[in-house]
Amino acid sequence: MSSEIWVVADLKIDGSIRQVTFEALSEAKARLAAKFGGPVCGVLLGANVSSLAGELGKYGAEKVYVVENETLKDFNTEGYTIALSELIKKHQPAVVITGNTVFGQDYFPGVAARVGAGVTMDAIEVDATDDKKLQIKRFSHSSKAIPTKLFLDHYPMMTTVRPNSFKAVEDPKTPEVINEAVTIDPGDIKTKVIEIKAKESDRPELTEADRVGSGGRGLGSEENFKHVYELADILGAAVGATRAAVDAGYCPYDMQVGQTGKAVSPNLYIAIAISGSVQHFAGMGSSKVIVAINKDPEAPIFQKCDYGIVGDLFDVLPPFTARVKSLLSQS
């Protein structure tokens, strides 16, 4: 085992690097580098990705391993699994981290099984013991519990990390770029991407957003969701929803926040006409500030929020939105 700590870059559909990658680099540097005595390194897997190495350097990567391969043009499970497994076997890093995105969730457990590693998913804290064992915290039991997980004698120690859990801090380095050739037999690619489509939206993505405005069943219709969009756009926020709102057809499933939807942890979460179920909180309970607007004073959300107004959303939201708008246009 070497003393290197790897962060595998997570790429968006447009090929740019996802923020969680920078967060992971910064956190690895702050919490792990000294304990392992090794450098923090970036890993880029894709086609035409070499040019991104500098961006990883900006957040403290001292080395960047690059695998350029046409089969890695779009994310594909087997390609990523083969490429990362080969790199791990060759260089034996101590720790390997990536974002707990749809992609990270798809291939990290497979890579771990292939290289004989220990793996955890969706860490919200990373740390190490004095004898160089990775130790992470994560949520379990619908986010009602936080277990600490300790890695034991299987290497590398791999984990995905939840977006928005750490601060990305610039720490410019000029990384040494190491090009690695990995042979990927086209016969090994058994999942083929036949369509990949970006959603047309100027709004930030839910899992990365710093602010989220969310609507529940109380909105009453798809049409009424415009009140949520309007507030969100003024705040530069992403828009989320409860399962009840999704089930009622007010918005698509990719907006669902909760145990069976997306996990978000923004600075500000505004819950509009949301009762505050356990399952919804499983996805947003770690938000820094929670605001509720609900007409039922007994709604559970009023027991677990920071600020709230008991009132009808159709009365309260327009003046609230107007005031936020005028405040933000002044500053």
Partner: peptide, 12 residues
């Protein structure tokens, strides 16, 4: 569904 869009995959 992937972050920021969707993907259609053919699998053996």
């Amino acid at each position: 569904e992937i972050d920021g869009g969707h993907m259609v995959v053919e699998v053996q």
